[in-house]
Design a protein around this nucleic acid. Structure first.
Lengths: 342, 342
DNA sequence: TGACCAAATGACAGCGCTGTCAATTGATGA
DNA sequence: TCATCAATTGACAGCGCTGTCATTTGGTCA
């Protein structure tokens, strides 16, 4: 096994060993067309033999690319971030790209400037935008101005232009509401997500659609404005439980908020799920660890982001994209937090 | 404002504008000594004016560095990872380094090979090892062989040679156990962390020390072997609660396991915290969201990793390190999961 | 005043690769 | 058979910077 004390092989060594020119090796490495199969094989053999690894710096300098893409996120739950990273990493690893992570405050406009500065500094070739960053057209415009390719991980909306992957939040929300309905609940509260996140609207729509489809009316007093976090979930649940005719079930737009609802109910001494059924959205680790364990919806975050990364990398390679966008489905995870109303 | 359509300024443009040579600009950028103050100022002014940003690729190629460091972790909780990333990111951002994240399976040796391959491929200059990776001497040796600098984020043990930051787990474990003791508990169960993580031992030691200091004996039957995760925590708690003389309090070596204990107790209809007090370790998001909210220990993870990154970068810059290692203290976060025994 | 020396600065090659464009090859059809 | 042309391959410059080593500067001391 070659020790690292021996100098690293360069493309030149490979060319010599394979008996071809520099440029031909370069073509093989970059999977360019117009290389004879037999030549390609020779080169691959030489690469193998020398354990050659191209230098990202040299490639970057010569080709003015960085082979780096950034994953931009604005602090959703840490489990969301972790799962997204996992997906991005997987795709990047397979495609020979590096991944730079970049948390950012999605609102303040000066932060956008700072973010762009960072991205330019590291010379990333492209960026993956996760919600709610993908809801921000200004950011996308600025990225385009800077000539940074981008792909959005976004809820399903008709109007997307560029690369994107989405997930059918509305349908999932409808399904989980239907699950509650099927258990016999008719007064179902809903705790909205953060108003600036477009997913919040999607999920509300699913909720409404389920009710309407079964002939129920949408009662505005059963809908509270949350902000996706535990504290807001708890507060909203308290409001709902204080109603003269409180709901027998609550659908919270995130697991964190659903946990808040659980705690609010516990504090009032309610028996769960008998006196209050609760469902969440996200399938965060908490969902399985709270009491009772939450029924919730799992988005295929890792797969979505991985797919987004591949889309982006394909674009950077100027490969004709198979699909400009793809849609993923969520999955219900039913646990112990739902029962028929007492 | 210069549009990106104009070509990016190069070091050459800066040199010309400042009226100095290429090399002098390079010296200023790299904070090398032996540059006159007035010269430095001229250069900085020119950099400012041109909005010059050095090209990482060119610097990397010419200097055979990458200005990239890797954060290696082996799937502790996602909140741990997120907080560690945050710290690393902060330091890297400030120091002009890029951060590559690298989850990895810490055990299988072939994985170590794969990991090294990836690190070599991306040509990182250094790596930050978080527990339990920092417990693996083989990995450290291999990194050294490959000439990749590294710094360990590790529990406090006397024997460290290289760069490291640590945290006094033992002391924190002792303190939280003392808290339980102070509430009047005398039969305190302990759920150990994963046997392969050295922190598990540290925390056990703190637990034992607290008991001994107050004149209690360490009762082996009150100590269960967990694996840091929720499921093992729940199982261990069940074992403890099945004892003919069950403990009145449990100190779990992680919040996930403490949540497991909480659920086990709920399932038996115990009144919490009256009939069972529980404390955890980590201050994960769950800790504040479960019921009752967990008293736990918070490690300054972000600060530790940030400090580790700075240590590493200093080393890479060949700056004389202020300290080869530094120690951080944990903080108790007391919430609602502890009360005197009924 | 000049010799001497460290500090400050500069000239230049070259890091390892890709883009451009030119040269070669080999197959095809007249 | 030879011109023709696409497919394949190669030569070479140059991406933007840093390392090495040479040169200049300015101060100090005899």
């Amino acid at each position: 096994m070659p020790k690292s004390s021996e100098l690293k092989a360069t493309i030149y060594d490979v060319a010599e060993l394979a008996g071809v020119s520099l440029k031909t090796v370069s073509r093989v490495i970059n999977k360019e067309p117009n290389v004879r199969g037999s030549t390609r094989d020779k080169v691959h053999k030489a690469i193998e033999q020398l354990q050659y690894q191209p230098s990202p710096s040299a490639r970057g300098l010569a080709g003015s690319k960085s082979f780096l893409i950034a994953l931009l996120y604005s602090n959703p739950s840490s489990s969301y971030v972790t799962r997204a990273q996992q997906g991005a990493l997987e795709a990047c690893g397979a495609e020979g790209f590096g991944l730079l992570i970049q948390p950012c405050d999605y609102q303040s406009p000066d932060r956008v400037g700072e973010l762009l500065h960072r991205l330019k500094e590291s010379r990333v070739d492209g960026a993956i935008l996760t919600p709610p960053l993908s809801d921000n057209p200004q950011l996308q415009q600025r990225l385009a101005d800077e000539n940074i390719a981008c792909v959005c991980v976004a809820p399903r909306t008709g109007e997307q232009g560029g690369l994107s992957v989405c997930c059918d939040d509305e349908r999932a929300a409808q399904q989980i509401t239907e699950h509650l309905l099927a258990q016999g609940h008719s007064r179902i509260g809903h705790i909205l997500g953060h108003p600036d996140h477009s997913v919040s609207q999607q999920r509300l729509r699913g909720y409404e659609r389920a009710l309407l489809a079964q002939g129920f009316e949408v009662d505005r007093s059963l809908i509270q404005q949350g902000r996706f976090d535990f504290v807001s979930g708890k507060q909203c649940a308290e409001e709902l439980l204080d109603l003269s005719q409180p709901p027998t079930a609550i659908f919270a737009s995130s697991d964190d908020m659903a946990c808040g609802a659980l705690v609010a109910a516990h504090e009032r001494g309610l028996k769960l799920p008998g006196q209050l059924s609760v469902v969440g959205f996200d399938d965060s680790p908490q969902a399985a660890q709270c009491w009772p364990a939450l029924s919730t919806v799992r988005q295929p975050i890792s797969e979505m982001v991985s797919s987004a990364a591949r889309l982006l990398i394909g674009e950077l390679r100027k490969q004709p994209p198979d699909d400009i966008q793809s849609t993923f489905q969520c999955q219900l995870h039913l646990r112990d937090s739902v029962s028929p109303p007492e």
